[in-house]
Design a protein around this nucleic acid. Structure first.
Lengths: 223, 223
DNA sequence: ATGAGCACATACATCGGATGTATTGTGCGC
DNA sequence: GCGCACAATACATCCGATGTATGTGCTCAT
């Protein structure tokens, strides 16, 4: 195995074993390189790779630190990976979202706070009856993010965040081609919110399913 | 932004835009470095980072190539990330798996081929009535992988693969501490397979839910 | 005594070049 | 025609030097 890969494994092991805790600072490049028995250049490759997937955080002039290792942070890298997929596989991502989003929405029905419900409501109100396509897409993303966050599962939240990114483009196209998409989306959002207020998990799940499925169906018909 | 990060973005852009297709070979290090306007050392950091998440495949003495970019390949990196999570967040991963696995199993009910059913059956038979814990865990992993593959969604398949990794450890502990876990797992596997043979999606979903939930419940009680 | 600035030490960023090593393809000899 | 040796290619690794951002502590004016 290449020395750089060895270094990646060793650093990973140090973190997993607890020798390096989240927030800890690594020895400086030259020292760590000597410690692991390789050159600074090779070590830098290892550190850069771990930095790309948010395991390490390097700050010039300061040092290199272990990140918080929050699921949210680590799964952020997922969206980077998802970006590489072409439109034909986006359908598969959307199918996964169709499974997760309704489940998350149903979970949120029993856990969401009054305060969060009001925030979501205010957000929908702020959008107005006839928003621009960009505002709608941004609002849609934020609306669902707010609900999923209320599910109480940060892994689920991050996963859906990562999956929603690439479908955003699809949503934009949809907004541009289907005139009634705007009003339909707004209506579906209201319905989901109402179900959440009623603590009706099944209704919330169903509306979320309908919501995602409508995007999926449209996308499938155009490819 | 650092030159290395720029290089990562540029290479990513080349791939996403289609200038570099899956399987294509990149210009050699020195040329690409000159093209992107940075040193070979810095370029290598970028390449190494993209290599870690399976975007690029470097072969010494040959060249650097774009991988197939299969969802399976790219999401493989997910398990690397998941490895960093501690046991308390494993519960959240398991909760996500509890959502996805039943859905995938239900999808498989209507798509799985006779041949695949027989293969799963043969696999269960080969395990015998009283397998070792290691064999059981390995068989369990393979059993579910086979089913999820039959769902026809490769993204879903890879995602579950990534999520199943960290829960494997949990399963091992379970096998070591709960004596009836072995027979219960075998029984549940038989039930899932029977439901698939009957093309009964709802039964398959329910058994899969029970199967994952039993692991989840046990894990929750021990933490 | 306190706060604003400045200078220095530190640590990462980037570079150029030199050398090692694995792979591939080619040409020679049998 | 087959196989082996060698050369060309491309990545692997290292070293040393210089640039740049950051944090810290000291000085000086208020």
């Amino acid at each position: 195995m290449a020395v750089t890969d060895e270094a990646i494994e060793k650093i990973k092991a140090m973190i997993v074993s607890g020798a390096l805790a989240p927030g800890d600072r690594l020895p400086k490049e030259s020292e760590l390189a000597a410690e692991l028995g390789l050159s600074r250049n090779s070590l830098r490759e290892a550190v850069r790779a771990l930095s790309l997937i948010r395991i390490l955080d390097v700050r010039q002039g300061d040092g290199t630190y272990v990140t918080s290792l929050d699921p949210q942070l680590l799964l952020e890298a997922l969206s980077f990976v998802v970006d590489f997929h072409r439109d034909d596989t986006v359908l598969e991502f959307l199918a996964v979202r169709r499974i997760l989003e309704p489940a998350a929405t149903a979970m949120a029905a029993s856990r969401i706070e009054e305060e969060e419900l009001n925030a979501l409501s205010a957000q929908l109100d702020a959008l107005g009856p006839d928003p621009s396509v960009e505002a709608l897409v941004a609002g849609d993303l934020e609306f669902h993010r707010g609900i999923v966050r209320a599910s109480g599962n940060s892994v689920l939240c991050s996963l859906l965040d990562g999956l929603s990114g690439p479908t955003t483009r699809a949503r934009v196209w949809r907004g541009l081609t289907q005139e009634d998409a705007v009003s339909r989306t707004l209506h579906e959002h209201r319905a989901i919110l109402a179900a959440l207020r009623d603590r009706d998990a099944e209704a919330a799940r169903s509306w979320a399913t309908v919501h995602v499925a409508s995007v999926e169906q449209w996308l499938r018909s155009t490819l």
